Simulated assay, not measured.
Amino acid sequence: MKLTLGFSPCPNDTFIFHGIANRKVDTEGLDFEIFMADVEDLNRTAFEGKASVLKLSFHAYAHVSADYLILDSGGAIGRGNGPLLVSKREIKLEDIDNLLIAIPGIYTTANLLLSIFRPMAINRKVYLFSDIPDAVSDGEAEAGIIIHETRFTYRAKGLIQIADLGLLWEGMTGLPVPLGAIAIHRGIPENVAVSVNRIIRRSIEYAKNNISETYEYIKQYSQETSDDVIRKHIALYVNNYTEGMGQEGREAVKDMFRRAADAGVIPVPGQEIFLSPDIKKGL
């Protein structure tokens, strides 16, 4: 069976999917057709409902939950790894409502978190995530939300942190922050979906056991090719929740959806959103 598989060129995704993309692990007879795209492009691909399996923001998932289920493995959930709000000057979070803020996409979880914490900060402009530090540094935007590799390099642009939206989330909920999910189309049989989840976990294990080889693959696509940046990126975004989100991860997702729906940011998912809450079913 052939499945399309989409993910971003960011180090955590290429780390996770190297084993699959380069046929290093057993794919249980499944044939994956790989495509890469920026996170917001992946989100919009999910809206079209054409991809079999793809990485997407949890914000976007809430809008496509009728078509996709969230897999247990491969996602980005964690503590201390949320989006950062930055600027060239010291600004209090409560004073940003009238500023032009650069965001990495309408349907990114970064934008959702901004809507939760500063709903009146509506003057937002979309940039490719890697262009946001320059946009803020050059004065095109007065503040910006940074994600992925730029989280580790923004200070070199003369920028300072205004707020850590992930830590604000953790402080408010006590839960890890859900950033990105791996979702599979509901039209795919459950036994195949379970196999995909198992294959992703196998690919993660392969990457951990073959670091040098995996880094060479990562560097082909990463915005930053420094070993130090790549190592920090993977350490932050590939964690225990990546191998399996578990009960706490699922609670964090449901809590985010509840709060965002109450704020009018997303529709309320109308059905079961996880492949299976029972991790004993071969996940």
Rank of each mutant, 00 (worst) to 15 (best):
A51W: 07
I162N: 03
P176R: 10
H59K: 02
V126G: 10
T225A: 12
I211D: 05
P104A: 02
K208M: 13
G144H: 05
I204N: 07
N209G: 07
Y237I: 11
D228C: 03
G144M: 00
Y217T: 13
F15A: 12
G158I: 09
I132H: 00
D26Y: 00
H63C: 05
S203P: 00
I199G: 07
V53F: 04
G144I: 07
S73L: 00
I20S: 06
F47E: 14
A163W: 03
D95P: 07
F257Q: 00
P176A: 13
I230R: 12
M172P: 02
K219L: 09
G6D: 01
T214A: 01
G158T: 09
G49V: 00
L167S: 10
M256H: 01
G29T: 10
T150F: 06
E224L: 05
M1L: 05
E216K: 14
E142M: 04
S195C: 03
I101L: 04
Y154T: 11
F15R: 04
A193Q: 15
G166I: 05
S73G: 01
L54K: 02
I146R: 08
E140G: 10
L84P: 01
I218D: 07
M120T: 14
K24R: 14
D164I: 08
R23A: 14
I204K: 03
G282H: 07
I16C: 06
Y215V: 12
V53R: 09
N197M: 05
L3P: 08
P104G: 02
N123E: 10
N210R: 04
H63N: 08
H59T: 12
D38P: 11
V177W: 04
V86A: 04
I182F: 15
G6N: 04
L99E: 08
V194C: 04
P11N: 03
E251R: 15
E170L: 00
P83T: 09
G171H: 02
E149R: 02
G166Y: 07
V86F: 13
I273G: 07
I199V: 14
D97Y: 11
P267D: 02
K50P: 09
L283E: 04
K254C: 02
V229T: 15
G270D: 13
S115T: 03
Y221L: 03
S65A: 15
K208N: 11
F274P: 10
S87Y: 01
S52M: 06
L179N: 00
K281W: 10
A181C: 10
P178M: 09
A141K: 04
R258H: 12
H233A: 11
F58P: 11
E272P: 07
I122D: 07
Y107C: 11
G144L: 06
K2S: 14
G187T: 02
T242E: 06
L168V: 08
V268A: 10
L30P: 10
R23L: 12
I116G: 05
K24V: 07
D31T: 10
R124D: 03
I106W: 01
N81S: 12
V25D: 05
G105F: 00
R202L: 01
R186E: 10
V265F: 11
K92D: 13
R79G: 05
K125A: 10
D134H: 14
K157A: 15
R79V: 13
F17Y: 15
L175Y: 13
A183L: 01
R231G: 08
S195G: 11
E251H: 09
I218V: 15
I77D: 04
G180V: 09
G158H: 01
